[in-house]
Nucleic acid binder design. Structure first.
Lengths: 350, 350
DNA sequence: TTGTACGCGTTATCAC
DNA sequence: GTGATAACGCGTACAA
């Protein structure tokens, strides 16, 4: 299939290639008449400029890329929308790039930066551990969003926007304790995980300790097979395992899933086993997904200020692009959203 | 920031650029020793080839692009995963490309095809109406997946894989009728919509007619403001409107949301209004999302065979790429998944 | 096995 | 206002 090029358009119009280029790119110094004629033949012949050639030649673009690992994660939905809105609002071009689980997001970023002459980069998800060596190879500003990562001190072109997972998890569990819950089970990431699963587990442990409750290993359910997967399925399976472990023992007062999806999956397992939520057992989640609010009963959860975080992410990135100094670490406060999935336990229970 | 190029690597190693190129691209005809030396210096200097230049020069790639409109739609989650698995399995490179709501997916495809020298294209979502003119400009095979679109007869390089939305919707509503429901409300897309919302509404109408039930306009709720948005919110709002319309009248037996998200949103509105599902009113959905199964009560729905459809999509595309003839229109049969959200109504009700 | 030279399709810099 | 022409960075005939 013969691809038509700018040269042929030029020939067809009896003009030089640079004139065609001017017409395409809305340059001011061009005769309106010739311009319309050129655009006309471009349409007639369905000519489409080759982006690779353009990127190659162009010294810069106004493009900001959002690299997201696990794009089907419902947590990212509104965040991506907000990022896009803000980026486009500032007249930058928005590029959403999916990163495979097996890929290294920083490597992808480094390649993309060259390929598209990026102005800035936003990382969403992933980023558990990254040597400063690889981050140093980025030559444009970047923001790591919704992942509470330690940034090397000398990374002047990088910033982090997130919540404090451990702290918020601790607050949630404290709240549960204050509502009279003492036997609180947790569904979390594999033992090997060093990301949010770990932080939220640490917060859980700290809250129990603060309330003089001894944490029991049998109430801590980790995902199997070292696979991090915050899915409904997974929550279901983990709750099943919990119930199995509990045979012959007293049921926990409450099950805390470190993501809303885990919590909802757990609810299903409890219902299937004939329990009621929250009458027989309470359930709490984390993240503040819409579905947690729409579930019946609605799930008590830690609501991350996703829109604000996304807005702040873009704000910081743009400031860095413009060479201004910024706060390189912004930790948002989350809000506990009460839900009917957690009941208040009478003091007489103790 | 000085970007290092292949030429400088060549100079540093005291070899020609072609030798460096050979080392990068794993060409066989190169001395192992020089190759390792080159790769070593590439690493030392953090050289990264410019993809734009590569794409420009390369006459072909082994890349298949998946263009998805509305990437955060949970319906696409497992489909995308399956597509990727199958594409990678056949040793093609998978590229996921988001298409903005405001963009024309075919235009994006035409550009991308040139830029990346694509071998094939898969469209997911969108594609409501497309003139054959624009589709004709694609020079590589493509498959429109999960959208039941009419393809112009002479489009030899295109195919469609989907379900028959009208038929399946009709089957679902017939099932509801057979379970004793007569006053069935439907929550669907705006009147202007000509895509799945329209088809599913048509199926609803046909089923009622088949069962000798007169369809009542007041039981048909369209989305507001001509915005197509299959969200929980939207389902909630529409159910609220339905309840308002029903003041002083008998409640419908059942609410049918043309997507599971709408159905779940509707449940919330019903619960908030003090009704029980399904005791006071039944609810049914469409699509077969995981969350419909995990919801409490679990939602009766039409389960699209998403994995099979995704597999078939790739199979067809690969056959086309290899120049074989294919069935250019594959309509899958969906399966009604029963759920506790719909109750059986005694015949005495009539 | 290796190096030279050309071309991929475009934009930018000049002259005119 | 317009047209040559030189890059952009890489892959690949072809010659060595």
């Amino acid at each position: 299939m013969e691809q038509i090029t700018i040269r042929e358009i030029a020939k067809l119009c009896g003009v030089g290639v640079s004139t065609v280029s001017r017409a395409i790119n809305n340059h001011p110094d061009i005769n309106e008449e010739t311009k319309t004629k050129i655009l006309e033949t471009i349409r007639r012949y369905n000519y489409v400029p080759n982006n690779s050639a353009r990127n190659l030649k162009r010294s810069e673009s106004r493009m900001i890329a959002v690299l997201v690992k696990g794009i089907s994660n419902p947590f990212f939905g509104t965040i991506i929308q907000t990022l896009e809105r803000e980026i486009v609002h500032d007249r930058y071009i928005f590029l959403l790039q999916q990163v495979e689980d097996s890929e290294d997001e920083v490597e992808v970023a480094i390649q993309l930066e060259k390929e598209k002459r990026l102005k800035g980069i936003i990382f969403l998800g992933g980023m558990v551990t990254h040597s400063k060596d690889s981050l140093e190879r980025l030559t444009v500003p970047y923001v790591i969003s919704t992942v509470n990562m330690e940034l090397p001190q000398d990374q002047e072109s990088g910033a982090v926007v997130s919540i404090d997972d451990e702290e918020e998890s601790c607050r949630l569990v404290s709240r549960l304790c204050e509502m009279g819950h003492r036997r609180i089970a947790i569904l979390t990431a594999p033992e090997s995980d060093m990301s949010i699963g770990r932080s939220r587990l640490n917060g859980y442990r700290r809250a129990l300790k603060d309330h003089g409750i001894e944490s029991s290993e049998e109430l801590i359910i980790h995902m199997k097979r070292d696979e991090v997967s915050y899915t409904l399925d997974c929550g279901y399976e983990m709750a099943r395992e919990l119930l199995e472990r509990m045979q012959g023992k007293t049921l926990p007062d409450c099950v805390y899933g470190v993501s809303d999806t885990l919590a909802i999956g757990a609810c299903k397992a409890l219902f299937d086993a004939g329990y009621r939520v929250p009458e027989d057992i309470s359930v709490a989640g984390f993240d503040g997904l819409d579905i947690a609010e729409y579930y019946h009963p609605d799930i008590m959860t830690v609501c991350q200020p996703r829109e604000q975080m996304a807005e702040e992410t873009v704000r910081i990135l743009l400031r860095m692009i413009r060479g201004k100094t910024v706060n390189r670490r912004v930790i948002f406060k989350a809000q506990i959203r009460d839900g009917a999935s957690v009941r208040k336990i009478q003091q007489e229970d103790e």
